[in-house]
Design a protein around this nucleic acid. Sequence first.
DNA 1: CACTATTTTTTTGAGGCTCGAAAAAAAGCC
DNA 2: GGCTTTTTTTCGAGCCTCAAAAAAATAGTG
Lengths: 414, 414
Amino acid sequence: MSVGIRHDDLRRRNRAMVISAVRRAGQPSRTEIAATTGLSHSTISAISADLIQEGILTESKASEPTALKRGRPQIGLALNPEAAAVLTVVLSLNFLSVAVIDYAGQVIAEEQRRLDTLVMPRDELIGECLAIVRRRLQDPDLDVGSVARIAMGIQGITDSHARAMLWSPITPLTDIPFADILEREFGIPATMENDCNMMAVALRWRDPERYRDNFIAILLSHGIGMGLVLKGELFTGTHSSGGEFGHMIHRPGGALCRCGRRGCVEAYAGNYAIWRSAMGISEDAAPTDVGDADMRALAANARQEDGPEREAYRRAGEALGFGLGSLFALIDPAPVAMVGVSAAAFDLIEPALREAIAQTAGGQHSSSISFDTEPNELPLIREGCAMRALTFVDQEIFAPGVQAKIGAAGKNVA
Amino acid sequence: MSVGIRHDDLRRRNRAMVISAVRRAGQPSRTEIAATTGLSHSTISAISADLIQEGILTESKASEPTALKRGRPQIGLALNPEAAAVLTVVLSLNFLSVAVIDYAGQVIAEEQRRLDTLVMPRDELIGECLAIVRRRLQDPDLDVGSVARIAMGIQGITDSHARAMLWSPITPLTDIPFADILEREFGIPATMENDCNMMAVALRWRDPERYRDNFIAILLSHGIGMGLVLKGELFTGTHSSGGEFGHMIHRPGGALCRCGRRGCVEAYAGNYAIWRSAMGISEDAAPTDVGDADMRALAANARQEDGPEREAYRRAGEALGFGLGSLFALIDPAPVAMVGVSAAAFDLIEPALREAIAQTAGGQHSSSISFDTEPNELPLIREGCAMRALTFVDQEIFAPGVQAKIGAAGKNVA
DNA sequence: CACTATTTTTTTGAGGCTCGAAAAAAAGCC
DNA sequence: GGCTTTTTTTCGAGCCTCAAAAAAATAGTG
């Protein structure tokens, strides 16, 4: 049951709104903020005076060389980079990367490490994550105020409260409550986010024109993942991060999937599936990890001549197309971003994919469905984590109130 | 971009909250309302005094024969039945029904008609709907204040703004803007709702214990439809009513569906599909309408001996199971209500359904997924429409303000 | 039956918030 | 320098919610 609005929530929400307007617009004037938020000039003036006084915003006097307009020139408001900092941790197959980001969103430090995630025992994997974070936090160059939030991203399934990794293809380990572990160790609020969700968050910030209220980000890599934004909100499952597009059923009882089941979309469109099919290996064979270089070579071969390689991509396209068709039956068509190493081979995938979609309920608008590709997922995931963490600071730390209390109560329940 | 909160929104939202609390709880006292909304007693006292003065609420003095407690007894607050009325219109295959409902939710008049929806021309179909509504509105017995809202429900696809029927299995006609037509004719705000969505709304009111924040209502009838509530909100597509579960792809290139495509879940689990399969008719044969009595006979046969009838239900269960499995991959498992004539044959469907789900990503929690059945969909659809319309009156008419303005703006956009 | 204890509801005063209007500030234009 | 234009700040009014106190209404008690 939703709760009444207290009088003090009012200021809190409007504060959050002003901060969010500044983060989105870059250097808006008070007048612009008043226009986008619908609040009066006096209210914006009062709130921004508070925020400047608290060191959250700054007046960026020397902005552009004045826009040659009559009247009092607008004073741009900007986020004060030193108001806070956040830390992102991205854990992917055999790779761990950390970045420190200032309040304005600039990366001010980073560190990366290779590690054997597939064989590391639990303590060691957690230990490596904690160690790399600790090194960054102890960096003497880090003087941008305190780190107010950690956002960790991982390939795999997380819980819907963004507290724990439940399952991941990068390790046989399960149910690691990374958010709690990080919070306990460093005393900094943390979340454990799903990689594809973070890709979607990042795309929204990168290109709000295209990726606005409804869109789909699909990771084409070892596995097939999805981040979904519907009606302006990140879509998550009721218990987990949800959106396991790769494990929708393409052919009941079909090819063996990495998840142990049969016929999943991923079992036809994941890297291992394309490889298996191109090499003439049985669909019942256990999935193997295929390097990015091998996949690129495979795609090159497929482009060169019409052989089993091209057929493998065709089958991947078909699986993705029917999967998308089923998805579109549920949510209606929306713009799609294909991310990851196999997105670079999307030219090989697209024809069969479109042909399949045309045979589904989504096919009505088949031609209007547009695809964009982005081969490199890691920067996107990190950007998404950064924005997630910064948005949290905006809302929960710099505009605290009832919301934060609800959050705390929710944590106890979870 | 969400808009700032004005000072005057506050009262409006809290008014809406009080009304909603009374609608939900029946006859709560001011103290109970204060507890559930989190607002102070003084605020609730002020708001409820306003609402009583305006004739929206009433003090139901003679409630229960006093709860034998010390202290000043609580005064129950109730909705004033005469504060307003709403009208529901449910259009289904060859059947049109209308009901007038008072503000407290009681049916005060109804009328039903048989008509040949499949062959009626556009003007005639619209004319019949208008005529039956007009008769109810002109009823001299109708003196419960003015009818403030019309909610129409139809089997088929509606647009996401609930304005028009886009496509429906009950008529070859498409794109009928019923909401606009009704509004123009009677000057009463109207919406055009999807039948399965209304089933979900009704289930939520009927059994809030079971159907709360996340659940699925599936209509097993001529076609297969779905109403989905996620995180407490009715899920709709980005353009249409969405949730076309029946047209997710079960077997690429498979059986012929009523929608003209192949391999949809419905092409295996719709009444016509079960019938076709049981009678040994080709999967390529055009779907035919099968009467409810024939379906009940078919189910009886299937229960009696293991023959093609039983096999037909098994295949339906398989299709539904894999479809649900794919759905659960996206949204995680949730309670399911099976509604419609074939829900009465769910005993024949369930084993294969569960077996199929167990082979999918949803299968992890296979045993915890619970099904409930309700053979009669029409009362549910009407109840859902009624609650939809009443909730609108609560929010947009009795607590008007920015909310309504946003709605109007959205209408212009659409 | 009067009185006390208990619980609910209303009243009252204080404090905050947003808004509109007016004033102040800061430029360009002539 | 004075005028115009635009942005930002200031100020008083009007609401709203809240906490505390008062009032109301009933059950228990002697």
